[in-house]
Design a protein around this nucleic acid. Structure first.
Length: 651
RNA sequence: GGACCUGUGGUGCAGCUCGGAGUGCACGCCGGCCUGUCAAGCCGGAGGUCGCGGGUUCAAAUCCCGUCAGGUCCGCCA
């Protein structure tokens, strides 16, 4: 493609629109969306805003982008600016790869060529890679043998006539242009270099597209984007708050919000019909690979006069639009639903990966109390269950693998055993200790086939299920059972409202104390707390929990009853959540909402196991910022300003 | 708060079980040669407190204890 603005290098800054002949190559392919649904969002309507080839400011640095040069430009004098990606010095001939878009487009590269005796030669030869230059030269055709098909600009090169150093680079702490693995500590410490490398920059660009798509979609669905405070009041529930000392009020603190939960409910009371926000959330809690320490983002949304069904429909539209706009994978709506109890029973977890089957089997009926084997015979009396997992083709797994399972079982507090359907005859500890009919019943219950293995676990239901659920995922991954082209979303519904403390027997909220109990006041009055379900739901995709939400409890009387079961008097609610408590006395509408994790969605789209890979400047696992050096000590004067004194922990 | 894994020239790794001279690989860096490369090639060179501290031993990168840093998990995440 040709840029017609070949004006003088010193020409005034003009905005050259990207050539229409170059359609956005990275524009996401859109889903078919052919079901004719009138309520369907216009998912990709923002794609035009995501033009990856923005207008070029023509100025003294450049009049073309490196990656734009084509054979149609042959003969043109061009000025380019960028980083020296690589040098190939032949002594009598110097090649330089010039790259002008820090990794954003791998195609943004062109080859420069210089010869001894030319003014630019010595300068370019002396520079290290990743130095920044602006060069002027002529676009030259490459001979047929020297065309590089790997580069979009591979049919041409630029014969440099003059070069100027804009900034020089010292020897880098790690290679930018090579795809060498680099330790994450170095990547975080020199995040700007990591961004230049490409893969990370592409994920950050995808993050921008996701944010744009979400804003466009949600606004189109009538959701009002409302920003809520970052400096707010500490709330007694949940994780540890980040505190911000007040200089104006000695001894008083702001807190960073763990989520805009109370604000969004107050917006409902305020008559905002539908709210959303890509909301920053701050929690001073330990991190995990999929959990950023300190701060993360949620697509926070709430709807007035809404039921669980209404929330599901909206989120399904949103997810459909995201998948269609930003992923090559496919999904299906409506998303299937599992109750919490079903999910744990069938998959051993409340976040099942539905890309493959391999459901857990129940053996309690077949074996409980029926065999001589004490581990089974005593199970019913101890209130234990016997469950099993089929391991396809598992007969020849190593003794070490099965022993590992036995050890994991022991760690989990359950008894683990196994059976191998060796073609030459059944083996494994259970084969030796059960009679033929019992083995047959295990095989049948587990739906095992020839050459399979069966893992069996005996113990408390929750522990047995968790162990086998863990092995289900592990086996599924080892055998590649999951369809890599699918995003299998599932709603997990009907979470229990309360859970019992094993030690004390007292009840507490299992999840969100603001969730509406199913059955309302009557349920709270008549049912055993352990049997009360909440209108509380999770959205799970490929085994990853993306989102948690609820129909909110907007009735002070039901709230009081619920808190009473958890052992709290009305005073507790009033003191802990004064704004919400008061507001709910002035006509709150029924409302419901959810908050899909923004970073988590990106992790799924980008198939990243670590959340730091989708964040430009993340804290490390220990919540340290290796680039900026946070957290850091501050001066005595700063501490005096906010009326604080540091008391080091006793050691 | 706890468990486990990792730490070896600038980068990525091997060496550690079974102690014996800082041994090796790939890249980078410095110098030289080189006119068609595509992460150029060839020759030469520099670069190390084997994270740190202690212990065992005639001898420790290697074994033991402690500690620091990074990662994964449990607890935690209404």
């Amino acid at each position: 493609m040709s840029n017609t603005l070949t004006g003088t290098p010193e020409s005034d800054i003009r905005l050259a629109a990207a050539s229409p002949a170059a359609p956005a190559p990275t524009t996401a392919t859109r889903g078919t969306a052919s079901d004719g649904s009138t309520r369907r969002a216009r998912a990709g309507s923002l794609d035009a805003d995501m033009e990856p080839n923005p207008p070029l400011a023509v100025n003294r640095y450049r009049d073309h982008r490196c990656g734009d040069l084509r054979s149609s430009d042959i003969g043109a004098t061009v000025r380019l600016a960028g980083w020296i990606a690589a040098k190939r010095d032949h002594g009598g001939l110097l090649f330089v790869d010039l790259r002008d878009s820090g990794g954003m487009a791998p195609a943004g590269m062109v080859q420069l060529v210089a010869h001894p005796g030319e003014e630019a030669f010595a300068l370019l030869e002396s520079l290290r890679v990743e130095s920044v230059v602006t060069v002027t030269g002529t676009v030259i055709a490459r001979t047929a043998e020297t065309v590089n098909p790997k580069l979009a600009t591979g049919e041409v090169e630029v014969g440099v006539t003059s070069a100027e150093v804009l900034s020089s680079a010292e020897v880098l702490p790690f290679p930018v242009e090579r795809d060498t693995e680099v330790g994450e500590e170095n990547r975080l410490r020199y995040r700007y270099l990591d961004l230049r490398r490409g893969p990370l920059a592409e994920r950050i660009a995808k993050r921008a597209r996701l944010a744009n798509l979400v804003r466009s979609h949600m606004s189109g669905r009538g959701f009002l984007e409302v920003q809520t405070p970052i400096l707010t009041a500490s709330s007694p529930e949940g994780a540890r708050d980040f505190l911000v000392p007040s200089s104006l009020y000695p001894g008083e603190f702001y807190a960073l919000p763990q989520a805009p939960q109370q604000f969004k409910q107050l917006l409902m009371v305020g008559g905002i019909d539908r709210y959303f926000q890509i909301a920053p959330c701050f929690r001073d809690e330990a991190s995990r690979a999929d959990r950023s320490p300190g701060e993360f983002y949620q697509i926070d949304l709430e709807m007035a006069f809404a039921t669980q069904e209404d929330v599901f429909v909206e989120v399904e539209y949103l997810m459909e639009a995201i998948v269609a706009g930003l992923s090559d994978k496919t999904t299906s709506t409506p998303f299937p639903r599992l109750t919490f109890a079903e999910a744990v029973d069938r998959y051993g977890t409340d976040k099942p990966d539905l890309r493959f089957g391999l459901e857990l089997a129940e053996l309690s009926g077949e074996l409980g109390g029926r065999t001589e084997l004490p581990m089974f015979a005593d199970a019913p009396g101890a209130g234990h269950v016997i469950r099993a997992l089929r391991v396809p083709g598992g007969w020849d797994r190593t003794r070490k693998w099965f022993d590992g399972y036995g050890e994991d079982a022991k760690k989990a507090g359950v008894t683990g055993s196994w059976l191998q359907l060796d073609p030459a005859g059944t083996k494994g500890p259970l084969a030796r200790r059960l009679d033929e009919a019992e083995v047959a019943s295990v095989v049948e219950a587990a739906a095992a086939e020839a050459a399979d293995a069966v893992l069996v676990a005996v113990g408390p239901r929750s522990k047995v299920s968790a162990l086998l659920g863990d092995y289900r995922v592990r086996v599924g991954r080892e055998l590649g059972l999951a369809d890599p082209s699918r995003l299998e979303f599932v709603w997990v519904v009907d979470f229990p409202m309360f859970e019992q403390d094993e030690a004390t027997g007292s009840w507490d909220f299992a999840h969100n104390p603001f969730s509406m109990p199913q059955g309302g006041l009557e349920a709270l009055r008549d049912l055993d707390p352990g049997d009360i379900l909440a209108y509380q739901y999770d959205l799970v995709c490929n085994g990853i929990e993306l989102s948690s939400g609820a129909v909110r409890n907007h009735r002070p009387d039901i709230m009081e009853a619920a808190f009473a079961i958890a052992g709290y008097g009305p005073e507790r609610i009033r003191k802990s959540f004064p704004a919400l408590w008061n507001a709910f006395h002035f006509g709150p509408p029924p409302h419901a909402g959810i908050a899909p994790g923004f970073d988590r969605i990106l992790m799924v789209l980008e198939e990243q196991a670590n959340i730091r890979e989708v964040i430009a400047f993340p804290l490390n696992q220990s919540a340290r910022d290796l680039l900026m050096g946070a957290p850091s000590t501050v001066s005595e004067a700063q501490l005096r300003d906010v009326h604080l004194q540091v008391v080091p922990p006793a050691t």
